[in-house]
Each structure stands twice: as C-alpha cells, then as structure tokens.
Design a protein around this nucleic acid. Sequence first.
DNA 1: TTTTAGTTACACAGACCTGTTTACCTTGGC
DNA 2: GCCAAGGTAAACAGGTCTGTGTAACTAAAA
Lengths: 194, 194
Amino acid sequence: MASPHQKQTMKDRILQTADRLFYLKGIRAIGVDTISAEIGISKRTLYNHFPSKDALIAAYLERRFVQPKPSDKSPVEQILGTFDALERRFGAKDFRGCPFVNAVAELGGEDKSVKKVAIAFKESRRLWFRDRLLELGVADPEGLATQLQLLVDGSIAQDLVRDDPAMARAAKQAARVLLENAGVKVSSPDGAKA
Amino acid sequence: MASPHQKQTMKDRILQTADRLFYLKGIRAIGVDTISAEIGISKRTLYNHFPSKDALIAAYLERRFVQPKPSDKSPVEQILGTFDALERRFGAKDFRGCPFVNAVAELGGEDKSVKKVAIAFKESRRLWFRDRLLELGVADPEGLATQLQLLVDGSIAQDLVRDDPAMARAAKQAARVLLENAGVKVSSPDGAKA
DNA sequence: TTTTAGTTACACAGACCTGTTTACCTTGGC
DNA sequence: GCCAAGGTAAACAGGTCTGTGTAACTAAAA
C-alpha cells in the first residue's frame, strides 16, 4: 500500500507544514485553509488524509513526542547537556516554548486527549532524568528528577516570554547545585562547552 | 440578578467576568458575546466601556499585574512562603497556570503589547526575589533570583499540565537547596519531604 | 417637565472557521 | 485504449467571530 521509495508522502508534507504553523502561530490561530494553501494543495486533499482538524492536531502532538537519542556520555554530562541543548534551541528564531504546554494553555482543560499526551510527555522527560540519576546512585532520584524537570520547564517558560537564552544557563547552574547537593561530582562550572 | 449594594461599576463587572472567562477558558476561546451574556448586559454596553476586545484583553492583563503585599516576615520565610502560596493555589479548582505565560502562548509573538506586559510581570517577580536576597547578603542575588523564578515558573507549567500541587513542594525543596548553597541558613523542612 | 446619559434588543456587515459537495482534471498500470 | 485513484478548483452550508447601527426604553438631573 505505502510507497516506501517516495521521498515524502503527502501525509508527511501536510504534517510537517501543520507542525510548523501550529507551533509558531498557535493551533487556534491556524485554519486548515492556511495549511493547505501553504503546501499548495486543495483543502479536499488535506481532508482525504486527516478526517478532521482535531485528528491533525493529535498527529501534530504525536509527532512532537520524540525520545532523546541515546548517548554514550556519562550520566552527569547527559543531564547537564540537556541545558546546553536548551540554550541552543532558545537561540533559534523559531523556538516558541513547549508545544505540549502551549497546547494545554491554548485548548484548556476541556480537551482531555491533549492533556493526556502532554502529561505523558512531561512524565517521559522526568523518567529520563530519573534513569540517569539512578545510574549515579543518588539518594532520591525521583524527587531530584522532578526538580530538574522544573528547571527545564521554568527556563522554557521564561524564554518564551523573554526570548533570553541565558535562562538555560541559569537553569544549568541551578541543576549543578542540586546535583552537587545530592553528592554527585560535577565538573567545573565554566560555560565554554556550550 | 443585580447585587443589592451595587458599589461595583459596570466596567468592574465587565472586567471581572472577562478575567474569569479569559483565564479559565482561554482568551481566543471566549467571545465578547459570551462575556456580555454571562453578565446579563447587551454587547453594545460592553463596547461602550471598551473600544475593542483587544482593549479588554489589555485591561485583563493589567488587572492581573498585582504586586505581592508587604510582609513583616523574614526574607527567607517570605521566599519559601512563595512556594507554600503556590501549592495552595495549585490545589484550587480554578487555577490554570500563569495568565501572562498563557497569553503569550496563545496569542503568539505577534502581539507585542501582550509580550511586553508579560516580560514586565516576570521581571517584577524576579526583582521581588532579588530584593529579599539582597537583604540576606548572598553573593549573587541577581542570578539566584533568576533561578528561584525558574522554579516558580517550572512548577506552574508542570501543575498546568499535571494538576499536581506536589510540584510546588518539589520547587520549595529545590529552593531550599539553592538558598543553603548560597550560605543562607534555612530552617528545617516543616513538612516531611515527599 | 424636559433633557441627557446610559442601557436594551436586535439586526446586520464582513470576515473567518470547519467540513462537504460537485465536477473536472491528471496520471500510472493494465 | 481504458480505468481507477487521487488530485484540483470552487462553490456551498452552517456556524462563529468582532464590531456597528438603530430605535426604544429607563432613570435621574435640571
């Protein structure tokens, strides 16, 4: 059925464009007309691939739910590297906060499926921290993972408002303190490695 | 149903209702018809008091821009008390995140005036922390204030998604560590850490 | 009383939204 | 050649939104 040799299917093109517009401008702000016009296809074609805008929104969020790629670095480097990656993304012109938090803020508590996937995403990120903290053998990996995730989400919210990548550095500095306090040995706090 | 003692002006009633609906359901999700119908006034009356919905949105955000009331407690108690207050608000049914962050997420980077007031609000909160840290004589009050604000915004974002007041306790615990690391003497945790 | 300011009810304009319908292309496989 | 799949364009239905226009109604001040 599927055509594996095609570079990009129509569904992919629709999803990719919807992703960009939903994320940059807001889900409610973008209509299906805008998406189809941007791709240069008819609205009918879009509806042939997605039964409704809600289905497109769901696919958009699913597409955003990606796992961090495996790394062979040390757990501490991976944890602190998270904030370096954040700083890089904050500097990009097309960064506009966490798509899951934004979707919940925009669509409200009404839409339960959106909230569900947002919760799942946040929890998966917290577990990623926890797994690395387990490897480090800290006393309370669950609690510390939550605290690190707070720093991540806090810096994202702050950058969304202020457009200031330094928020990621502040978060990294706080993370270092929390790690050291938990008995983890952290390399010198110079920021050259960003 | 008009109140017996009507000390409240029409403008106040409009603002109050707009505030509740904008905050709970989202700014884009609420139309002026809904607001006027909820109050029981005509749409014309609403437009007699606010020239446009944008003006109403601006007034809504201005109204939300309140300063914390002065306290005679110690700086440390004030700082940590922030997170207790957060936990209380997280528990309330009508809490739905930070209205400024939500507005920026919803209205996008397009609306510059919204972003401007959001930046001003976040900065005022950061300065509130800084002033108390100055009183405590910590080495880097600016940086530490930013880090505490990250914990505040992180816990708000996490609670918006997860509806979990424990996020405020996790933030408080992290704040304690950051304060102690800065040489501030912090009393022992009142509640057992989860 | 007359005036005046504020309100109501309601229709309306013009725009945009989601989603459907109709009819007419293209194109590749047989 | 033939056919089916899937594309296009455009109108359309039915709804929402912001904002205006108009005529009638109150209530209090002058």
